[in-house]
């Protein structure tokens, strides 16, 4: 898709409505929709040529516990890739995602140009694990959440 800022909210609502058909967990749907929004907005701001691919994979057998993966792929310039690596080193090294997130809020409070909070928000508020893969100028970010088993009690 073209990572147009105007399309980001439209896509978040689409993800939310689509997931509601497959996952009976309003909290999880809300967290994943937020993550989709933040990933796409990053692409809208930083992807080369404004192009990005977002995929959602729900990996679950029957009613058993499963995993949901959001994956965003886009081309990025070297400066942005360096920044992504820096953010991921902070996220990967943290013991408590909320403490890391609030610390980042304080650190970035005076920075007028960027929020720098999107990925930390996915980790802390979304309770999703994050993975970064760089191949040349192609950045792939995967955000994963556990989908709880369906209870029939």
């Amino acid at each position: 898709m073209d990572a147009n800022p105007l399309l980001v909210s439209v896509t978040r609502r689409f993800v939310e409505q689509a997931l509601e058909n497959f996952v009976d967990d309003a909290d999880l749907v809300s967290r994943v929709a937020m993550a989709a929004h933040e990933l796409l907005e990053n692409a809208a701001k930083y992807a080369r040529q404004g192009k990005a691919v977002l995929s959602i994979v729900l990996d679950r057998v029957g009613d058993e516990e499963g995993q949901l993966t959001l994956r965003l792929i886009n081309e990025a310039n070297p400066a942005h890739i360096d920044r992504l690596r820096e953010v991921f080193s902070r996220i990967d090294g943290c013991e408590d995602p909320l403490v890391m997130y609030v610390g980042l809020m304080r650190r970035n409070a005076r920075d007028r140009d960027i929020s720098g909070l999107g990925l930390a928000r996915i980790r802390a508020e979304g309770d999703m694990t994050l993975n970064l893969d760089i191949d040349g100028e192609i950045a792939t970010i995967a955000a994963r959440a556990t989908v709880p088993a369906v209870s029939h009690t």
């Binding site: 980001v8 978040r12 933040e38 907005e41 304080r106 970035n108 409070a109 005076r110 929020s115």
Partner: peptide, 16 residues
């Protein structure tokens, strides 16, 4: 209905 992290940052700046 929703607030993104850029707007959330506006609240961070205000609270600080």
């Amino acid at each position: 209905a929703f607030m993104n992290s850029s707007c959330l940052k506006g609240f961070v700046t205000w609270i600080c």
